[in-house]
Computed example of a mutant assay.
Amino acid sequence: MKTTIHALQSKKGVEKITAITAYDALFASLFDAQVDVILVGDSLNMSFGGKEDTLSATMDVMIYHTKAVCAGAKESFIIADMPFGSYQTPKMAIKNALKFYQQTPADAIKLEGGKERSKLIKMIVNEGVAVIGHIGLMPQFARSEGGYKIKGRNEKEMLKLTEDALALQDAGACMLVLEGITAKVAQHITQQLNIPTIGIGSGEKCDGQILVWSDMMGFFQRFKPKFVRQYLDGANLIQTALQRYVADVKSGNFPSLEESY
């Protein structure tokens, strides 16, 4: 059964929401129905494209990967990231949000920003597109902020983040991603909202959790963020299997008679 936004919202305070990223049909099909939500994140620019940040991801790239994920996942709720530079003006934002709905079966789009995005979100929602908000540590702002900064470390930041969250909810956002926010502040925000919060590096009191799949599966080796728990030694498993394949080919052990026509 296809997961809907109403089903996700009904989980608030009842059952934790599970979410993971995916960028292609193969992994999306493996994750489908195992998690409530699959995010086609612009994080693909780093984990899939090898870039240093998310900023050079384009609408064409995001739509391509969203189509692929939707082809593989039929039951999980699919969210597509609006890439950097795709929602700088109301006209541009509405055009690109509608493009996701017109060209892919995505269930919702996600964009970064606080209270200053509330009017924009309201306009997109009024066009019939479901919107997920994203506050706290916002990767699209990392370069302008001089790096990835944890938010909510003082009362001023707590008040600003709470104000942002409430403004986005009032604008019609159906869920919020809370990234890199101190656990106490994330809990406070979650308690203030009627809509679910999905945390990443924001403590266990959020209504759900999301991780980048290559982090969670141990494929990304350059570094491991504090908030990541690895559930598989993916990189070593792949490299060991590849070494066995190479050895079998070189020794003539593969292919066998049974594997030949």
Rank of each mutant, 00 (worst) to 15 (best):
E155W: 06
K156A: 14
E157C: 03
M158V: 02
M158Q: 14
L159N: 12
L159I: 12
K160E: 12
L161Q: 05
L161W: 04
E163T: 14
D164T: 05
D164E: 03
A165D: 04
A167E: 11
L168P: 05
Q169G: 05
A171Q: 01
A171T: 01
A171D: 00
G172Y: 02
L178M: 09
L178C: 06
T182N: 06
A183F: 03
K184I: 11
K184E: 15
V185E: 03
V185P: 02
V185C: 11
A186E: 10
Q187S: 14
T190F: 10
T190Q: 10
Q191L: 13
Q192W: 01
L193Y: 08
P196A: 10
P196E: 03
T197M: 07
T197K: 08
T197R: 07
I198L: 14
G199N: 11
G199P: 09
I200V: 15
I200G: 06
I200W: 08
I200K: 04
G203H: 10
E204W: 07
K205S: 14
C206N: 14
D207F: 10
G208Y: 07
Q209C: 05
Q209L: 12
I210A: 11
L211F: 13
V212N: 11
V212G: 09
W213I: 15
W213F: 14
S214P: 03
D215H: 13
D215Y: 11
D215I: 09
M216F: 12
M217A: 15
G218R: 04
F219A: 04
Q221G: 05
R222C: 01
K224L: 06
K224A: 07
K226W: 03
K226F: 08
K226M: 05
V228P: 07
R229Y: 09
Q230T: 15
Q230A: 05
Y231Q: 03
D233V: 02
G234S: 06
G234L: 05
A235M: 09
A235P: 00
N236E: 12
I238L: 15
Q239G: 00
A241Y: 04
A241T: 09
L242V: 11
L242I: 08
L242A: 12
Q243K: 15
R244S: 10
V246Q: 12
A247T: 12
A247C: 01
V249D: 00
K250I: 00
K250D: 01
K250C: 00
N253G: 00
S256G: 05
